[in-house]
Every structure is written in C-alpha cells, then in structure tokens.
Computed example of a mutant assay.
Amino acid sequence: MARKRKGRAVSGWLVVDKPAGVTSTAVVNKVKWALEAQKAGHAGTLDPAATGVLAVALGEATKTVPYVTDSLKCYRFMVRLGAATTTDDAEGEVIETRDTRPADAEIAAALPAFRGEIMQVPPQFSAVKVEGERAYDLAREGETLDLAARPLWVEGLEMIARPDADHVELEMICGKGGYVRSIARDLGRVLGCLGHVAWLRRVWSGPFDADQGIGMDEIDRMARTPELDARLLPLETGLADLPRVEATAEGAARLRNGNPGMVIASGLEYGEECWAAHQGRAVAVGRYMGGELHPSRVFVT
C-alpha cells in the first residue's frame, strides 16, 4: 500500500519577497511548513545575497513551474566598478582591482553588446553541473573551471543611475538561465575597470511581481492560518504565458484521465501548446490538434 503523503493537498502560488541572507530552498521549506503543504517548489533560484521575487508553487501548481521559469524576468542591480571578486559579487574575495573609471557615455555605449541573443559564461560559483558535480562545490575546493558559454536572451539592459564613480545601477530583462553576476563581470572587463554585483533584486518574474510579495516575518505571523491561505494565487497564474482554450464537459472528463479531449478555441495553430479550462479551473496543458487537446500535464483539482 502506498504511503499517505503528509500535509494538506493545497495548490496555488505564494509570491515571496525574499530577503538577503536566506537561500531559496530555505524559503520553500518555510512556506511548505507554514501552509502545511504536501508539495512545494520554486520557479527560479535566487542567490542567498539577492532579494525580490521568489514564486513558490504548492501542490498541483508545481506542474506549471516550467512555464514560469521559461518566462522573462526583470532584475535591478548595482555594479561595483574597479574590482573583480571570486564569486562576481560582494560575497567573494577581491582578486584584482583597477583605478580607471568609465564615464557614463562609455557605459551606455557598452550596453548594446549585452542585448539580444548573447553567449554568457556562468560564474565559477554557480549551480552549473561539471561532470555530475556543482560548479560552486568544485570552486570552493579551489578548482578553476573552464565553463562553457551558454546562450541567453536579453530583452533589455539599461542604466538606471550612476550614484558615484564607483557604482552604476542597471536594469536587465532576460530569459531563462541568465546570470546577473556574469553581466557585471563581463561589463567590467569590457570597460577595462573590472566589476562585480554589489546588490541584486528580482523585480518581477513572469506573471509575478515584487509588489505582490510577502515577507518572511509575515509568513511566520500568518503561518497555519486562513489569512495565509488567502494570500495564495491560483495555479492558473503560472500559465499566463500560454494561450487558453475551453474544454467541453466531456472533453474535460477525458483530459483529466490523460486522454485527448474536445476543446473550443480560436486563432490557435495546429500543434500549438496551450492550456484547457473547464468552469474556470485548469484541466490540462497540451498541444492543440484541431478541436482536441492532447495533454502533456493534467491537473487534479
């Protein structure tokens, strides 16, 4: 007999405004405890020193995590010019310094090279796997890694402020897999002055905004109460970037059993990925095949 999963079968999203000094895993564990949830996960890791949007999925909403991680994200960050560090942020040791400082116009002129489809080498201290091991574990052991460059889509990169000669505040909108620390490192190299991230905040991620975020103190205060339940967003929020179709009653029943089901749609191309709803609730995600949805993920709600 299968072991009964502990906790409540709660489904939805809780948007957390992560503070600095806490790991993403610790946030997920706190949310899972506070909601007594059976299952939880997050849509995109933030470094411990970073703050901002960490969207935590509960229950059936965990099936929509890939659609949020694939979405665009917006970061605000401060680059400290004049120094390179082991981690490409303020947490690491300074390994080289330079006295030169670029003018605002030089920074603005360098930014276009970091927009569009770029190739980016992850930081030495990153979660990238090297022969089955995490890069940060190998880096802590003193190894210098030859990490391969990876493609990244940068929708936008703009200078927001220049508070002093040593600092520049930037805003970046990018796709999946971007490392802000690599942007700071590479920009500093291009400018000839070196650089690293002084602070970093994720302003929004896909459909989730920092303004929606709940703090860790609030989670503690509202833990295991209906007040915290009321802060949950529906699992359908994670499907915002996919087109929606309506399933018929019979189609919904078939989809819930993992079979192709009849849907009502307009403007979709054959084979396009979409999600089906019935009576306002998500039923399945799949491919539209001319009047039917062929499901790849089914929601039990």
Rank of each mutant, 00 (worst) to 15 (best):
G156T: 14
G156C: 08
G156H: 11
G156K: 13
L157E: 12
L157M: 10
E158P: 00
E158I: 10
E158M: 01
E158S: 09
M159V: 15
M159P: 04
M159F: 04
D164Q: 05
D164S: 13
A165H: 04
A165P: 01
A165I: 02
D166Q: 14
D166C: 05
D166T: 06
H167E: 13
V168I: 11
V168D: 11
E169I: 06
E169R: 02
L170C: 07
L170V: 08
E171N: 04
E171I: 02
M172C: 15
M172Q: 09
M172S: 11
M172A: 15
M172Y: 02
I173Q: 09
I173M: 05
I173P: 00
G175H: 07
G175Y: 03
K176S: 14
K176T: 08
G177M: 05
G177K: 00
G178I: 01
Y179V: 07
Y179D: 03
V180I: 14
V180A: 14
R181F: 07
R181I: 13
R181Y: 09
S182H: 06
S182D: 02
S182A: 15
I183H: 04
I183T: 14
I183R: 04
A184S: 11
A184D: 06
A184I: 03
A184C: 05
R185W: 00
R185L: 06
R185F: 11
D186Q: 10
L187C: 08
L187T: 08
L187R: 01
L187Q: 13
G188W: 12
G188P: 11
G188Q: 02
G188A: 07
R189C: 06
R189Q: 14
R189M: 13
R189E: 14
V190S: 12
V190N: 01
L191Q: 09
L191V: 12
L191H: 06
L191E: 10
G192N: 10
C193P: 10
C193Q: 08
C193H: 07
L194T: 01
L194H: 13
L194Q: 02
G195I: 04
G195S: 09
H196L: 09
V197N: 03
A198D: 15
A198G: 13
A198H: 04
W199I: 05
W199A: 05
W199D: 08
W199S: 12
L200C: 06
R201F: 01
R202Q: 06
R202Y: 07
R202F: 11
R202N: 11
R202S: 11
V203P: 01
V203T: 15
V203D: 10
W204K: 03
W204Y: 07
W204I: 00
W204T: 01
S205L: 12
S205V: 00
S205D: 13
G206C: 05
G206E: 08
G206Q: 04
P207K: 10
P207S: 09
F208C: 09
F208I: 08
D209Q: 13
D209W: 13
D209H: 15
D209R: 15
A210W: 04
A210I: 13
A210S: 12
A210F: 06
A210T: 07
A210Y: 03
A210M: 05
D211A: 15
D211L: 09
D211W: 01
Q212R: 03
Q212V: 05
G213K: 00
G213E: 12
G213V: 04
I214S: 02
I214F: 02
I214C: 07
I214G: 00
G215R: 12
